[in-house]
Amino acid sequence: MTPDFVKTAPIQTLLDRASGMNAEGGDDRLKAIVRDLIEAVMVAIVKHDISESEFWQAVTFLQQGAGEFGLIVPGAGIEHFLDLYMDAKDSEVGLSGGTPRTIEGPLYVEGAPLVEGEANLSDDADDTDTLHMSGFVTGPDGEPVQNAVVHVWHANSQGWYSHFDPTREQTPFNNRRRIRLGADGRYAFHSKMPNGYSVPPGGATDRLMKAIGRHGNRPAHVHFFVEAPGYRTLTTQINFGDDPFAADDFAFGTREGLLPVPDRRDKSAFIAFDFQLQRAASKEDENFSTRARAKA
């Protein structure tokens, strides 16, 4: 049987009813999206001749993996796809330039301490090298961006993020800060060197990756939000260019222009990296996305 079966009248009627297309009330846009999503599942079932048992195994997997959807989405390439889609939409309207966007990931925590000057991100002792990172935030014409705030967060040397650390050994905002910049747009911070990490062993994401012959490793990296009045808020991260997984990030967070190689010497590593923002076309451009984020 071919996927054309889904286009038959009984199935199309079922789709209309299941998505509420013929029902009064509700959101028309949501109805259309739900209809397309259900239809896509039906097409996949027919195309691959998915059995009833296989289908319910998938449902069980999704139920068990509910706590890891934030990892499954980037691991499946969907979060990176959203970045590529937004890039393409920018290109259609003639927007270009600026630091590349890339995935946020699921491990941001709201309310990190707001500091000025050179920031120390690390509250906790960690027997590893010290990372020093600095640079400038500029606009599309190279102008210093005033009143910018740089949000920065990363893992510790064991690959654990504060707030999400199963050992419960980290303080709530270890390796997390918001840095308010001065008129020159310069930022600087130091912290204990982060390490790469893998998805939780035996968890839903790990099982999925192994089932399709992939690994679940991320290179060492540092996350950023950069926000400023009049500019589009940037979501990005840098991956360490000398990490063995820099070119094979399971979450597809690596992008050209975001791979600085640390200058490692004397128990320290130095990274110089500048951010360039695009101007906001509307107030909405200055806002963060409305995805749910953790609170300490």
Rank of each mutant, 00 (worst) to 15 (best):
R186P: 00
V6P: 10
F288K: 11
P10R: 02
M133Q: 12
Q276K: 12
L95H: 03
T171P: 13
F136H: 13
V73Y: 02
H221K: 10
P194H: 07
M133T: 15
H223V: 09
G26E: 09
R264H: 10
H132A: 08
G253W: 00
N174K: 01
F136R: 09
W160E: 15
T138Q: 09
F81I: 06
P3V: 13
G185S: 07
E256V: 14
A247M: 04
H190A: 07
D184K: 01
G159I: 12
F173D: 15
A296P: 11
D263M: 01
K47P: 09
T167V: 04
T254Y: 00
A281L: 08
A246D: 09
R255Q: 10
R214W: 05
A125R: 06
L258Q: 12
R177Y: 07
N147W: 00
P262S: 09
V199C: 02
E68A: 05
F136M: 10
Q64T: 11
I38T: 14
R178A: 15
A40R: 09
Y161I: 07
V199H: 01
L30W: 05
P100W: 04
E256W: 02
F81M: 13
V145G: 05
D83P: 00
T254I: 03
K267M: 14
A148S: 13
F5W: 12
W56R: 11
T128L: 00
R264C: 11
L131K: 10
P244V: 11
K295P: 01
G203K: 00
G241H: 06
A228F: 07
R265C: 10
I238P: 04
R293H: 09
S198L: 04
G70E: 05
V34Y: 01
G185A: 11
K89R: 10
V41L: 09
E24Y: 02
R17D: 15
A32I: 04
K7E: 14
V73A: 03
